[in-house]
Design a protein around this nucleic acid. Structure first.
Lengths: 258, 258
DNA sequence: CCTTTTAATTAACAAGTTGTTTATTGTTAA
DNA sequence: TTAACAATAAACAACTTGTTAATTAAAAGG
C-alpha cells in the first residue's frame, strides 16, 4: 500500500498538470446608503465586478464577452496564490494592507473552456471611500458595485456565480463569527456603526434592537470602550466610541442560547 | 485597466504552469481511551499519518525519507481536487460516505523540492472502528495514529507540519461551531458521548459540567431526543438517546454570553 | 430664546438561563 | 443487601435578555 503511494508520489510525468493557475478576488465593500448628518448610517454590502470586453487584444471575439466577472489573474511561479491575490488587488486599487482571505479552490474540469485552469478564490474587504472614488475618476469604467441581493441575477462568466454565492456565505459567517467586521469600520466606531455593518447580513433581534445592542457591546470581551473620546457622526449628542481588541474568539453552538 | 486585465487572461503561454497538482488529507479519528462497560467514554482526537519509505520504487534514496506525512496523491485531469481526496481516501480505507472538507491550499514555491507542486489540503473524519481494524490487519504498517497533542513534535515531511497545525485549528472550530461532531458519533448517542467528543477540543465549563450539559442538550434546536429508545452503553441505568437534526446553525459572537 | 426632534443612553422589570449543590433513580456487582 | 455510580431532577441565587418607558444633549426651526 505504501509502495503504491510512493510510486504515485514520484512518477510525476504520469500525470497531466494544470494549464493555468489563477487567483480571483471577490472584493466587498459596504457603502452607506443614507448618510445624513447626525444619523446612524444605513448600509448595504456590495461586491465589485468587472465587465469582460467584447473583443480580445487581437480583435477577436472574447470568450465570455460582455459578462460580469470577478477580477483576477495568473499566479506567477515565484509567488503563492495568496500573494498573487494581494498583488493584483494592490495593482488595481493602490491600497495596501487590505484584508484578504482565501476561501476555496475552483478546479472542476471544464469550468474554463480554454483548458484546465484552477482558480483560488479569495474575498477582500475594501473601504467604501476607495471604490466610490475609483468609480468617479473613471466613468467609462467596466467596473461596478452590486448589492449582494442582486448580484446573483446577473449573467456571470465561467463558474463565477458559484464562487460569488460561496463568497457571500463565507463573509456572512465571518462577519458574525469573527471580528472581521472591523475592516469595514474606522478604528474607533459607535455601537450603531457596528450594528449597521452586522445588519447587512443578519436579522438577529439582539443585534437589531438598539437598546439591547448598545447594552451588550459593553460586555463583549473583544471590544473596548475608548475612554475620553466621542463623536457626533451619528447623533447630535456626543456618542461613545469603541474599538476592537485583537483576540481569537470561538463560541460553541452548544453553549449559545436559542 | 480592463485591457491589461483582458490581455493577462488570454496570453496563457506567458505564464509557467504548476509541475503537479495534488490533494492531501488529514484523516482524523476519535478513539475511546478507556471504554469500560457502563462508563462514559474518555476520548482522544487522533490524526493518521504514513511513514515515507527509505527508498523509492527504483531503489534510490527517497526524498523526505523516513519522515511522517499526510496521505495524498495527484489529482487526475478528469476530476477535482476534492474528488481526488475522496477517491484516495476510499481506495485507502474502503469506506464510502466519509465526511471530507477542503480547508486550504499550500502552494509556496519551494515547498516541494521536486518542483512547483500544489497541495489541496482536506480533513476527513473516519470512525475509529475502521482505523483500529486497519492497524491490526497490517501490523508492519507504515501507518500510525498520533494524538493531536503529540503530532507536532514529530519530524514531518515537506510543509506538513503547517498543514496539520492548520487542520487541527479548523477541525477544532468546526467541532464547536458546526454540527460536524455527528461524524464522530453513532446516529443515536447519549449526552455524555457527545460531551466526550467536544471535550477533546474545549475546556468550556458549560460543556465540562455533566449537569449543565445534559440539561442544555435538551434545548438545542439542532439536536432532538429520540423517543422510546435508550442505551446502557455508558451507564447501568437506561440513558436517553439524542440525534442531530440537519440544520445550518450560525450564532453570532455578538449575542453570546461571556 | 424657546420648543421640537432625535440618537444615545439609562432604568426597570418580568421571563428565561446558567453554575452549583444536593437529592433521587435504576442497575450492576460485590 | 448494600455499595457504587451515571444519569437525571430539583432548587436557588446570580445573571442575561427583550421590552417598554424615561432621560439626556445638541441641532434646527420658529
Amino acid at each position: 500500500m505504501s509502495n503504491k503511494q510512493a510510486l504515485k508520489q514520484y512518477d510525476i510525468k504520469k500525470y497531466r498538470t494544470p494549464d493555468g493557475y489563477t487567483s480571483d478576488i471577490c472584493v466587498f465593500t459596504i457603502i452607506a446608503e443614507k448618510n445624513e448628518a447626525y444619523k446612524p448610517p444605513t448600509m448595504d454590502l456590495k461586491i465589485m465586478l468587472i465587465k469582460r470586453a467584447a473583443l480580445d487584444s487581437e480583435g477577436n471575439m472574447n470568450i465570455e464577452a460582455n459578462k460580469w466577472a470577478i477580477p483576477g489573474g495568473f499566479v506567477q511561479d515565484d509567488e503563492t496564490g495568496f500573494q498573487a491575490a494581494q498583488r493584483e488587488l494592490e495593482e488595481e486599487t493602490n491600497i495596501s494592507g487590505i484584508h484578504i482571505k482565501h476561501f476555496g479552490v475552483y478546479d472542476k474540469p471544464g469550468r474554463d473552456p480554454r483548458g484546465w485552469i484552477i482558480s483560488n478564490a479569495h474575498y477582500a474587504i475594501v473601504p467604501d471611500t476607495y471604490l466610490s472614488l475609483r468609480k468617479a475618476q473613471d466613468d467609462a469604467a467596466d467596473i461596478e458595485l452590486f448589492s449582494i441581493n442582486d448580484v446573483l441575477d446577473l449573467d456571470l462568466a465561467f463558474d463565477h456565480k458559484q464562487i460569488i454565492e460561496d463568497a457571500i456565505q463565507v463573509i456572512t459567517n465571518d462577519l458574525l463569527q469573527t471580528t472581521v467586521a472591523k475592516n469595514f469600520l474606522p478604528e474607533y466606531f459607535t455601537y450603531s456603526e457596528l450594528q449597521a455593518v452586522l445588519k447587512t447580513v443578519t436579522n438577529d433581534p439582539a443585534i437589531l434592537s438598539d437598546q439591547s445592542f448598545s447594552r451588550k457591546i459593553k460586555s463583549l470581551p473583544f471590544i473596548q470602550e475608548v475612554q475620553g473620546k466621542t463623536t457626533t457622526r451619528t447623533s447630535k449628542r456626543a456618542t461613545k466610541l469603541y474599538t476592537f481588541i485583537e483576540m481569537n474568539v470561538i463560541k460553541p453552538i452548544y453553549t449559545a442560547r436559542y
